[in-house]
């Protein structure tokens, strides 16, 4: 792989970029944070987003400027959840090398790195969460096909091809999935 010299944003640049996030970007971050805490009962989305922003500003996470800020914050939130599990049980966590492994053909810096933080409690919660999601969509086989495809890491194109769905139908199904999950997990109370 070619070595790419990435320009890292200064703290000042990060601060101004955060200030200039659009309404749509802020909503994206909220939605992503809400997704990322699905299955967790001791972390709320505000804490997660707050901490991700703090880590950018204090230099704990270095933002390469060619990666969209929202994408980078998504990856930061993902790593925070990984760390959250490590703190709960003394288990392996995503390494710095994994966190910053950047494929120059891929904008998503963590997409292909598996989340290796694991412990029995986490596995049990994942199992329960998947069961809950399955229950929510038990009367919607089309949504289940999309969910199962995403769960095994298939791309949208692969899912559409296998399920013989048009892109329009896929987008409609995705919208339905988002709406149902948002409703299902919106009222979750955090126990601290």
């Amino acid at each position: 792989m070619a070595v790419v010299n990435r320009k890292i944003a200064s703290q000042q640049e990060i601060a101004y970029a955060l200030r200039n996030l659009t309404d749509a970007d802020l909503r994206r971050l909220e939605r992503i944070a809400r997704f990322r805490i699905i299955g967790l009962n001791d972390l709320d989305w505000q804490d997660l987003l707050h901490d991700a922003v703090a880590r950018l500003l204090d230099g704990t996470r270095r933002w390469p400027k060619d990666i969209p800020l929202v994408v980078f914050l998504r990856e930061t939130m993902r790593s925070i959840v990984s760390e959250h599990w490590r703190r709960k049980k003394n288990t392996p966590v995503l390494s710095e090398a994994q966190l910053h492994r950047i494929d120059d053909t891929e904008r998503h810096i963590l997409e292909n790195a598996p989340d290796t933080t694991t412990n029995p409690e986490r596995q049990m919660l994942a199992s329960e969460t998947l069961a809950k999601i399955e229950k929510v969509f038990q009367g919607d086989p089309e949504a289940m096909r999309v969910i199962l495809g995403m769960a095994v890491g298939k791309s949208p194109n692969e899912i559409q091809k296998e399920a013989q769905m048009s892109s329009k139908r896929y987008a409609t199904t995705q919208r339905r999935i988002r709406r149902k999950l948002a409703r299902e997990f919106a009222d979750r109370r955090v126990t601290k």
Binding site: G39, R122, Q123, A126, L130, I147, M150, A151
Partner: peptide, 8 residues
């Protein structure tokens, strides 16, 4: 299942 949830 943990990996599946993360992928999802």
């Amino acid at each position: 299942e943990q990996y599946q949830l993360d992928s999802l």
